[in-house]
Amino acid sequence: MKKRTYNNPVGVGKYTGLLLITPFIAGFLLFTLYPFAASFLLGLTDYDGVHPPQFIGFENYRELLADSELHDAALVTIKYTLILVPLKLIISLFAAMLLNLEVKGIGIYRTAFYVPSILGANLAVVIMWQFLFTSGGLVNQLIGLTGADAVSWYGDSRYALVTIILLRLWEFGSAMVLFLNALRDVPKEYYDAAKVDGCGGVRSFFAITLPMLKNVIFLNLVLQTIAAMQEFNAPYMLTGGGPMRSTYTIGMMIYNEMFRYHDAGTANAVSWLLFLCITAAVLILFRLTGRNREDSI
């Protein structure tokens, strides 16, 4: 059989492809791989950012494993992730289903639901959260109307983490967009056929919608887990990690070690521990959900 040949009207040479991806490769080497390798090496040093780093092997890791600060931060991070991620997936899926309805002006609603995700935990949002959750804030005023006692949102270590979780739940837009996109790909005929067979809304949801969204649910689960385990901004801005370290995440610990305590060795070692934890969490998620995903359409 004669080998097919193609014309090359724009003169693409042998190395053109390589040349075209060079900016990405350079960026990846410089801004991802280099910091990644440097971070690991710095984690093996005693480095204050002023004197040259001194190689100390795994001493930072040995000290960290016995450090109560890391234990506290790890517990908070795990608790935060375990509460936030499932709630966020449920809320974003629910919102996506609502926004998938054919209603007049749905584009405006979709935009409005997505806006909080763009805002992030910036200063304006933090001020709004202060206004909502401080002791005389709007939320407590509303609670007061019901006759119930005001809640100590920031001062009580049981509730402080809740304010941060609520902030991140409010920012469900990115997960919602993925769900919405997947929902729009589900053929309507499936629902019509189910309806003819006498299948109700709830049954359709569990028998059609959820199975069809398996891959997107998994994708969101992984993305949201990674983001939650890296949480820094919201507790830093809202609570400073308090009270009693109840909102002190591993992300905050890395920041403190690096920029407040000038201990770059420890900060990088914690970063690598976090990286290993995230990798482990993602592998577990793959293992737990792998079989189901293989079945998906």
Partner: peptide, 9 residues
């Protein structure tokens, strides 16, 4: 606790 409740951060 009062301080944190009233002023946040």
């Amino acid at each position: 606790k009062e301080h944190t409740d009233q002023d946040g951060n």
